[in-house]
Lab assay of single mutants.
Amino acid sequence: PKDQAKKEIEKALRNGDEEKAKRLAKKYGISDDDWKELKKRVS
């Protein structure tokens, strides 16, 4: 599910692991808009 994916990506971003977050986003098909939203929430 997308919500689970977003949680994992957000966690990776919080850990400062943007490479992992990007890989997860690609793997789960997270859209650019969702990606920006996640980045905003974390920063």
Rank of each mutant, 00 (worst) to 15 (best):
P1L: 14
P1W: 13
P1A: 12
P1F: 12
P1I: 12
K2E: 13
K2M: 14
K2T: 14
K2A: 13
K2G: 14
K2L: 15
K2Y: 14
D3T: 09
D3V: 08
D3Q: 08
D3I: 08
D3N: 09
D3R: 08
D3M: 08
Q4E: 13
Q4F: 13
Q4H: 12
Q4D: 13
Q4M: 11
Q4P: 07
Q4R: 12
A5N: 07
A5W: 13
A5T: 05
A5R: 08
A5C: 02
A5G: 08
K6S: 09
K6T: 14
K6R: 10
K6A: 10
K6I: 15
K6V: 15
K6W: 15
K6Q: 10
K6E: 13
K6L: 15
K7W: 13
K7I: 12
K7H: 10
K7D: 11
E8P: 01
E8C: 05
E8S: 06
E8L: 12
E8Q: 09
I9H: 00
I9C: 03
I9V: 10
I9L: 03
I9S: 00
I9E: 00
I9Q: 00
E10Y: 14
E10V: 12
E10K: 04
E10F: 10
E10Q: 04
E10A: 07
E10R: 04
E10H: 04
E10I: 15
K11I: 13
K11N: 13
K11F: 11
A12E: 06
A12F: 09
A12N: 03
A12G: 01
A12P: 01
A12K: 02
A12S: 05
A12T: 04
L13G: 00
L13N: 00
L13Y: 02
L13M: 05
L13K: 00
L13T: 01
L13Q: 01
L13F: 04
L13P: 00
R14G: 03
R14H: 05
R14V: 05
R14Q: 05
R14I: 06
R14F: 05
N15G: 10
N15S: 12
N15H: 09
N15A: 14
N15I: 10
N15Y: 08
N15E: 14
G16P: 01
G16H: 07
G16R: 06
G16Y: 04
D17L: 10
D17M: 08
D17P: 02
D17V: 02
D17C: 08
E18M: 07
E18D: 07
E18K: 04
E18A: 05
E18C: 05
E18F: 06
E18Q: 05
E18W: 08
E18S: 05
E19L: 10
E19K: 12
E19R: 11
E19I: 10
E19Y: 08
E19P: 08
K20Q: 11
K20S: 11
K20Y: 15
K20A: 12
K20R: 12
A21D: 00
A21R: 00
A21T: 01
A21P: 00
A21W: 01
A21M: 01
A21Y: 01
K22F: 11
K22A: 09
K22D: 04
K22G: 05
K22S: 06
K22E: 08
R23F: 13
R23Q: 13
R23W: 12
R23T: 10
L24E: 02
L24D: 02
L24I: 07
L24P: 00
L24S: 01
L24F: 03
L24G: 01
L24K: 02
L24R: 01
L24T: 02
L24Q: 02
A25D: 00
A25N: 01
A25F: 03
A25G: 03
A25R: 05
A25L: 03
A25E: 00
A25I: 02
A25H: 02
A25M: 04
K26R: 10
K26G: 06
K26D: 10
K26L: 12
K26Y: 09
K26T: 11
K26W: 08
K26M: 12
K26F: 09
K27T: 08
K27G: 04
K27A: 10
K27Q: 12
K27E: 12
K27W: 12
K27N: 07
K27Y: 14
Y28E: 03
Y28N: 04
Y28Q: 02
G29I: 03
G29E: 08
G29W: 03
G29A: 09
G29R: 07
I30F: 08
I30V: 07
I30M: 12
I30R: 00
I30S: 01
S31F: 02
S31K: 04
S31M: 03
S31N: 07
S31A: 04
S31P: 03
S31L: 04
D32N: 08
D32V: 08
D32Q: 08
D33M: 06
D33G: 07
D33W: 04
D33V: 06
D33N: 09
D34H: 03
D34I: 05
D34A: 06
D34F: 03
D34P: 00
D34C: 05
D34W: 05
D34L: 05
D34Y: 03
D34Q: 06
D34S: 03
D34E: 15
W35Y: 15
W35G: 00
W35C: 01
W35H: 01
W35D: 00
W35V: 07
W35M: 12
W35E: 01
W35I: 06
W35R: 01
K36F: 11
K36R: 11
E37N: 04
E37F: 03
E37K: 05
E37Q: 05
E37M: 05
E37L: 05
E37W: 04
E37A: 07
L38Y: 03
L38W: 04
L38D: 01
K39W: 07
K39D: 03
K39C: 02
K40F: 12
K40P: 02
K40H: 14
K40Q: 12
K40Y: 10
R41V: 15
R41F: 14
R41T: 15
R41A: 15
R41Q: 15
V42G: 04
V42L: 09
V42N: 05
S43M: 13
S43L: 14
S43K: 09
S43F: 15
